[in-house]
Nucleic acid binder design. Sequence first.
DNA 1: TTATATTTATTGATGGGTCAACTATTGAGA
DNA 2: TCTCAATAGTTGACCCATCAATAAATATAA
Lengths: 142, 142
Amino acid sequence: MRCSLSNQEQILRLLNGLNNQISPKFERCTGISASRYELLHQLYETEEINQSTLQKAVNIDSGAITRHLKLLEANGMVTRRRNPSDNRVIFVRLTEEGRKQIVGYKKEKISFVNQMLHDFNPEELESLSDMLNRMQNNIIEY
Amino acid sequence: MRCSLSNQEQILRLLNGLNNQISPKFERCTGISASRYELLHQLYETEEINQSTLQKAVNIDSGAITRHLKLLEANGMVTRRRNPSDNRVIFVRLTEEGRKQIVGYKKEKISFVNQMLHDFNPEELESLSDMLNRMQNNIIEY
DNA sequence: TTATATTTATTGATGGGTCAACTATTGAGA
DNA sequence: TCTCAATAGTTGACCCATCAATAAATATAA
């Protein structure tokens, strides 16, 4: 019944539950985790990028970025080199192999998303996207 | 720019990013993790409940339930006993101490959620809640 | 009854995330 | 110039989730 939960409180519960459901299913369907996919996708769109801007784009901790990239490098998906003019930063880029692989991942991702949102019309997608962004902004200072 | 991402694909990215943001912030503000809160809340609403129905309500793995409860039991928040008429199942209930504590958590949670959704009108909440549920249903078979 | 299947809970291995402490490099001001 | 602050990345400790393998109790069917 859950009658004692306000609509607002429900949202949080739904979000958390939904994410717990999505993560393993996404990975099963696509062969890659959602964060890892976003990371690769980000790399796919730019020639070369440093880790801290990558981190901001993907919304995970810099420690997590480091570990992802070390693994991807070991798997030959990515190469890294220091910025010669600033030895603190590291430039990351996809290898040829990596560029090929991500195409396959993208296909799987799209088909997963299509299923998940198959009954959403464009206005709903727009509105959902807007609301998610607003939530994120509303807690940005915490 | 992210021009190459369809609206549908964006949603998944937003959801993942949002959850990564929410989890630590929720915990900082309320003093408890979102899943743990839901678990306690569920217990708050029923006298006594067994772990497998608890698991379905909170949407996490049964292993996670076990570990949460062991910790909560160690902290004196819950008690557990076997069902005398079926020794496989374990009944869980809040202690008096637990009931007191959760009231405080609930206050913190509500204020967090109020901030996160402060600019949402009732129709939006309704619609958001509906869409999240639909997404969950759409991937239920995966 | 006895063998088999199902259900409930637990545990270990693994992966992904945070935070905080640390190193190394660069930048800026006295 | 020299010191101090800021920035980029790495690492270890920790939490929370999944999955797969297990144990124990019960249900089912031959």
